[in-house]
Design a protein around this nucleic acid. Structure first.
Lengths: 261, 261
DNA sequence: ACCTACTAATGGTACGACCATTTGAGGGTG
DNA sequence: CACCCTCAAATGGTCGTACCATTAGTAGGT
């Protein structure tokens, strides 16, 4: 009995304002300053109901909000309840993806941003990643190329590999922020990349170019790598322009030439 | 009566799975594909309760989730209810800030990322912004400098101006993504900038440097502007290093020299 | 030793009641 | 007519109870 008071002094009864928000704030605070650590379990709803001195509905609403924020995970049944979760990038991604969805960002805007990030990431990755990582990247890029060059390529699998390549590269830059932002944007632009690989004429070039980029990185040739990245986005822009039916007047015609590795 | 059926065919009764999630999905879908537009009001809780064929608690939990997502705004009283909201960057920012808070990103990581973004933003801003915008930026930078050079500067006001300068510059790049990401990161690194301005010895240099940057931008001198930006981050790194008590061995001592405009 | 059936804990849902806040309409007064 | 006051109605916010569904553990039987 008195143990309860000792152990669970976490929460205090609510008195002011919108009760459910107070509950959210108290739990969130407890998580953020470490009184509740990832994996730990919160008291049951009925328990918290009495600790906070409120109705159960309020507790449930608070839990739903924190669950939406990605801070809690809820399981039902015996030994169920609300468990503190380690925040994942996917929460930020979802939030950003929702925003992009409602705000209709143009392909060029996404391409431009991504190209800028990619250039920095590539430079950092060459300087900081291990030889093993560089080799792994090259190997994956070759697998990507092989997948796309088959007669009837599995585009879904290819998109998955492409996504993975981007994540690998971002991780090699040794800066989580690039990794997260790339991750968060992925949903937004994956559709465009997909278009690039759907068109057979672009497919081969883009695939070859990825492997060239990976090779330049593994050989620690930053200028070459950046050059290939420029080509990738030139191709992507041309492809998007064509899809929109716009005259690809600004795109160099010689991009149609074959690219050998 | 029959009007009701016509007008409010928006939602259908829920049958499967976790009911509240179904409700969230239906309302979210209605918003995202435009059946519910920003500013419009959803039916009252009791109304939806009967439309969905569920209890009121479920509806309330769904609304709380959508409110947390930033899709709804709830007012109480007569004419109150859930109103569809235009998504704002601040939702993404909050989400990202929460993530950064839990993941303890090092100052260097933030600085590195931000410097990379700033360089691209500056280049784009010079190329794309109007003369008026450039002048406005310079004017604001001078106001910033004036604020910081006073005998007993108002650091809170200065921080506000600094934040505004960054947003202005990002907006001048004509790419919403840069604007949003800068916005989202602001909470994360504003604390470090603050440190830079608290130290009197750095304060003058940083303030002068901002105005130099703005001047270079308004004069459309990209190389100069990038040079000043490099200096800004060099100063910031030195300041952060000092605060951590680490020997600032990697920082050039000549940064201590006065910088004139 | 294995399987089964039961029990307890816990989240999920429903219903009903009441409170607090806000808007707007009605009516009175200057 | 214009202004102010009061009151009713709509609506979100909270509480309480009851019951259902799911899950983990346990006791008992084969």
């Amino acid at each position: 009995m008195s143990e309860d008071k000792y152990i669970e002094k976490l929460f205090i009864p609510v008195s002011i304002g919108r009760v459910s928000e107070e509950v959210v704030l108290q739990i969130e605070a407890a998580i953020l300053d470490g009184r509740l650590k990832a994996g730990e379990r919160l008291p049951s709803e009925r328990e918290m109901q009495s600790q906070f001195g409120t109705g159960r509905g309020v507790i449930r609403e608070a839990i739903k909000i924190l669950k939406q924020k990605g801070l809690l995970e809820v399981r039902k049944g015996a030994k169920g309840g609300a468990y503190v979760r380690e925040l994942e990038v996917s929460n930020v991604s979802e939030s950003l993806a929702l925003f992009l969805k409602q705000h209709q960002v143009s392909p060029e805007t996404l391409i431009e941003f991504r190209e800028s990030m990619d250039r920095t990431i590539t430079t950092l990755a060459i300087a900081r990643s291990s030889v093993d990582e560089k080799e792994a990247l090259l190997k994956e890029a070759l697998r990507f190329k092989a997948t796309l060059l088959e007669p009837d390529p599995d585009l879904v699998a290819a998109a998955e590999i492409d996504r993975n390549l981007n994540i690998m590269l971002a991780r090699m830059a040794r800066n989580e922020l690039f990794e997260w932002v790339m991750h968060a944007l992925q949903m937004g632009f994956s559709s465009h990349d997909f278009a690039l690989y759907e068109d057979a004429s672009y497919r081969a070039k883009a695939a070859t170019n990825w492997s060239n980029t990976a090779r330049a990185i593994s050989e620690e040739e930053p200028m070459k790598a950046l050059s290939f990245i420029g080509l990738h986005y030139a191709l992507l822009r041309q492809c998007v322009d064509e899809m929109n039916g716009e005259a690809a007047s600004m795109v160099a015609p010689f991009l149609d030439d074959n690219i050998e590795e």
